[in-house]
């Protein structure tokens, strides 16, 4: 159990099956151009066997290469009636792929070094905006956070089973105006508060779309202090001037 756990972690470390193969080749000090198929196939399969469950999303690729290894091994075992001149080594596909991959991997290491160098040079593009600088405590909320809060709230409301019959229709434009009016009166809107006040699902839904529209047009901004903190909506001010206390 313990041993398999270790191997499981290890498999995650490899970028993919080619990465694992290269690792095995290096470990065994094998010449990439002359791979002993039996040894490497055995080693490779051993690694895979240490995984208890196969996660098809990820390990399918490992299995694909495993089958390639077995295929090549079988090709090499089969006796041939006559050896063709310049017969292609069945290992060639694998070798080509490995050599290409090795180059990509080495290049990515060089790029990593360049990335590190470059990240130490700060450019004006990287400057946090004025707003973020003043309000370091707030993070901008992503669309998904908003949607998640909204739908969990709506689910809660649904459980109450309040049924209302209403003839009124809500328009995006009106709601946007309403939200802006509230924001001009108050400093911010508490996201959950605002939606729990809405009477019907339709109204809440239109309000939600209006809010998204306002965020998209960069008129308002949704922020929160940290994960699971209340979401606050306020007017986005590019040149946000905070009065010093």
């Amino acid at each position: 159990m313990d041993a398999s756990a270790i191997y499981q972690v290890k498999l995650e470390v490899f970028e993919g099956p080619l990465d694992l193969l290269l690792f095995l080749i290096k470990k065994k000090k094998i010449d990439i151009n002359d791979i002993p198929m039996a040894t490497i196939t055995k080693e490779y399969l051993e690694y895979l066997n240490h995984k208890e469950k196969i996660n098809l999303d990820r390990e399918a690729e490992f299995l694909l290469i495993a089958s390639l290894l077995i295929y090549i091994k079988s090709q090499m075992l089969l006796p041939r009636e006559k050896v063709l001149d310049e017969e292609k080594d069945p290992r060639q596909i694998l070798v080509d792929q490995l050599l290409d991959y090795q180059k990509i991997k080495a290049a990515s290491l060089l790029l990593r070094k360049k990335e590190e160098d470059e990240l130490q040079k700060w450019k004006r593009t990287a400057l946090p905006s004025q707003f973020q600088e003043e309000e370091t405590d707030f993070m901008e909320v992503s669309l998904f956070d908003l949607a998640e809060s909204f739908f969990s709230l709506m689910q809660k409301k649904e459980k109450k089973k309040i049924r209302t019959i209403k003839g009124k229709e809500f328009s995006l434009e009106e709601k946007m105006k309403e939200i802006m009016a509230i924001l001009k009166g108050n400093l911010f809107i508490d996201f959950l508060d605002y939606f729990s006040q809405q009477e019907s699902f339709e109204e809440a839904f239109v309000s939600f779309l209006s809010l998204l529209e306002l965020i998209k047009s960069r008129i308002v901004i949704a922020t929160q202090k940290g994960p699971f903190q209340p979401i606050k909506v306020m007017i986005r001010q590019e040149a946000y001037v905070k009065r010093k206390p």
């Binding site: 970028e15 993919g16 099956p17 080619l18 990465d19 690729e61 694909l64 792929q97 290409d100 991959y101």
Partner: peptide, 8 residues
């Protein structure tokens, strides 16, 4: 790209 990396 996937073929080069051996990964989707």
């Amino acid at each position: 790209i996937s073929a080069m990396r051996g990964v989707d």
